[in-house]
């Protein structure tokens, strides 16, 4: 197995209009690794994921996927290269049924990545299997979150950027979500997950990257972070 990181951001500067959000953000995610991107509201977590995906083109810096430069390419090309994206606001297609939502995400099988089909996804998310013909807009928040993850998996990605999967979900659903993410990890999927819920993040990830006001402030093993109250106090407590 190569040592090239699967996802790599180098010195990323990103802007919304004139407001700079990211300041030289660098991070790597190795193949098969599950990394948590932590930080307070407005720290730049979502923007980092959008920048990696090509949704927010960086003004400076590089994005490499599997050793290939992808910055400056449109999101669809980044997706086809094997990087999936699950947005924060869920963004299911409200007028489309569950099956149709999955169809939008469907891409050909990819070597080295798990191959997903609707039946396999219904196994992973049994709730979805029971509502194949329901419209996205008529589903609960948790069901929608599962659908967006399943929809992205239909692209057979090598890695997935997951933006706050636990946000606004009931604890029991968060538990199910954690179960599903651990299953994906067992499949060998690489994941970069932005989270505010530290306990949830600790239960599913190996390593943590902490952002504060658009700067990377901390990088280390999840276990070390959980053992270091001062770092958590400094960057994560509200």
């Amino acid at each position: 197995m190569s040592t090239t990181p699967l996802i790599e951001g180098r010195g990323l500067d990103s802007f919304y209009g004139r407001a700079q959000i990211l300041f030289g953000v660098s991070l790597t995610v190795a193949r098969g690794e599950v990394v948590a991107l932590l930080g307070r509201n407005g720290a730049g977590k979502s923007t980092t994921l959008k920048t990696l995906m090509g949704l927010v083109p960086p003004k400076a810096g590089e994005v490499l996927f599997d050793g290939t430069r992808v910055h400056g390419r449109p999101p669809y090309a980044v997706c086809r290269a094997g990087l999936g994206y699950v947005p924060e606001e869920r963004r299911v297609f409200a007028e489309l049924t569950v099956e149709e939502n999955l169809e939008v995400g469907r891409r050909p099988a990819r070597e080295g990545a798990p191959h997903w089909t609707p039946p396999r996804l219904y196994e992973l998310f049994p709730n979805l299997g029971r509502m194949r013909d329901r419209r996205g807009g008529e589903m609960s928040g948790g069901e929608q979150q599962m659908l967006t993850i399943a929809r992205t998996l239909m692209g057979n990605p090598l890695a997935v950027l997951l933006d706050e999967p636990s946000e606004g979900l009931a604890p029991v659903i968060v538990e199910q979500m954690g179960e599903a993410i651990r299953a994906l990890k067992r499949e060998g999927l690489t994941l970069l997950i932005s989270e505010q819920n530290l306990r949830f993040a600790a239960s599913i990830t190996d390593r943590a990257v902490i952002l504060e006001q658009g700067h990377v402030r901390y990088e280390g093993a999840m276990a070390d972070l959980m053992a270091d109250a001062s770092v958590r106090e400094k960057y994560l407590s509200v």
């Binding site: 449109p74 947005p87 297609f93």
Partner: peptide
């Protein structure tokens, strides 16, 4: 299906690999 999806949220359709 892609047309209907794009009518709702074309950026998301792009992020799902559709040109």
């Amino acid at each position: 299906v892609l047309v209907r999806a794009a009518t709702e949220d074309r950026e998301m359709v792009g992020a799902l690999g559709v040109n």
